[in-house]
Simulated assay, not measured.
Amino acid sequence: MNLKDLPIQQRVEWLLNEAQVYCERFSHPDLSAARRRYVQEHPSPILVTACIDGRVNLAHAMQSPPGLMKFLRNIGPQLTMKRMDFASHVDSHISAAAALGQGSLIMVTYHFSGSHTHLGCAAYGCDTELARQDCFQVAEHIRQTYVSHAFPVYPLVCGFDTDIEALLIHGADGQSLNLSDPELNADSLGVWLNRLHPHLPENLAQDFLPLLQGNVNHAAELRATERGIALEHCEWAICVGNGFEFIRTPNVAMVIGPYSPDMGKPVSTAARVVARNMQKGRIPEDGALLLSCCLYNDGLVEKATAEFRSRLSADLAENIIAHTEPELTRRLTRLSAIFNVEKRSLELLHP
C-alpha cells in the first residue's frame, strides 16, 4: 500500500521513524566522518528560499548530505527582502558564514509543472513567469544589499519542475540549463555553470557543482523508474516552525518556516491543500497531522524557550486551521516537538 493511503496513525508513525532514522544516520561514525570530509572539501554554506509546497523537496532532489543546506520556506511572495523578518534570517546566515571566513551561495527558487500549468505555484496563481520574475527581484535585492560585503554573497535563481524533480538553473543573460537533460555530465555541467554565471566565485562554484550533479543523478534515476509523474498534491501533514530536514520524501508535508510575522496566510493555504486532498480522495479522510517544531542547541534555557515556542506555534496554527477548515481540525493529530541541532534529533513534547 502507498504511504499516502495508510491510516493516519501509521503515517504519523512512519514520519516519526523517519526522524529517528535520520538522527541515527547523522550520528553514525562512518557517515559522520564522510560528512565532515565533504564539508572540508565543500565548505560554502548553501541557503535556499523555497515554497511550502510539499512537492518541493530540494535536499532530496539534489541528494544533499544531511544538514548541509539551510532552507527558508514560506509562501513564495512572502519570501522577500522587503520583510524584515525574512531579511534578518538571510543576514544571520550570511554573518555566520562570514564568521567562518566563507562566502554565501543563495538559491532563490520557484516551482512549476512542466506538463500542466494549473499545477504550478498557487501563491502566484500558477503564473510561472510571475513567480520567476519575483525571484529575480529577490535575488537582485540580495545582491544590492550585500554588494560591498567582505565575503562574496551570490544569489542565483532556480526553477524546480515538480513533475520530474529537476532544477532549471537561470543565468543572468536569459540563458538557462535544465538538469533533466540526459546529455549532461560532470564536465559539461561545470562548463554550463561558468557560462550561466561567469562571475560566480570559483570556490562557490566548486561547492555548488556536487549538488547540481546530485540533481542530474536524481532526475536520471527517476527516468529509469516507473513511478510516474507526481502531479497532484498529496500532502497530509502541516509542519510549522523549523527542524524538518528529516522529511526527505516529497509530497508528504507542507512546511511553513517562521519567516513571516503573520502565520495566517501560509497556514490557511496549507490547511486548504490538505482538506482538498481529502475531498478529492488523494489521501484518506481519517486524519491529518499538525506538527510544530523549534530548534535548540544544548542548554536548559534555550531548550525551555524552544519548547514554549513550539507549543505556542501549534496553538496558533490550530486556531488558524479551525477558522479556515473547521472540519479538518476535528481530524487533526497534533504533535509538538523540538529539534536538537547538534544531534539532529527530534524530541516530542508531552501534551
Rank of each mutant, 00 (worst) to 15 (best):
H170C: 12
Q102E: 14
F112W: 11
G103A: 06
L156Y: 03
I94S: 04
Y154G: 02
T162W: 05
E183N: 07
A172H: 08
L79S: 08
L167D: 00
L130E: 03
D161H: 11
T145L: 14
S188T: 15
L177G: 03
R143E: 14
L167H: 06
S92W: 13
E165R: 08
I169G: 14
A123Y: 02
T80W: 01
D85R: 05
A98I: 02
Q78R: 15
Y146T: 05
L179N: 09
G171E: 11
R83A: 13
L184I: 10
L72W: 07
G159L: 01
P155E: 11
Q175N: 15
D85Y: 03
A131K: 01
Q144M: 13
L130Q: 07
A99E: 15
D187K: 05
E165T: 01
D187W: 07
T117S: 14
G67H: 04
F136G: 01
E140H: 03
Y124W: 13
K70V: 12
V147L: 10
Q144V: 09
I169L: 15
V147M: 10
Y124A: 05
I169D: 11
K70C: 10
I142L: 12
G120H: 09
L79D: 10
S104P: 08
S92H: 15
S176F: 09
F86L: 06
I142T: 05
K82P: 03
I164Y: 11
H116N: 07
L179K: 09
S176T: 10
F136T: 03
T128I: 05
Y124I: 00
D134M: 11
R132A: 07
D91L: 08
I106W: 04
G120T: 13
A98M: 06
T117C: 12
F71M: 13
C135L: 02
K70P: 03
G114A: 04
D181H: 04
M107K: 07
L168C: 06
M81P: 09
F151A: 05
M84I: 13
L184K: 06
G103R: 04
I142G: 07
A139S: 00
L167R: 07
L79V: 12
S95E: 10
V153F: 01
A87L: 12
D91N: 09
S104I: 09
S92M: 15
G120C: 12
V90T: 04
H111Q: 05
A99T: 13
S88L: 11
D161C: 14
H93W: 08
A166W: 00
G159Q: 01
Y154V: 06
H89G: 02
L167P: 03
H141I: 08
H141T: 13
E129K: 00
E140M: 04
P182C: 08
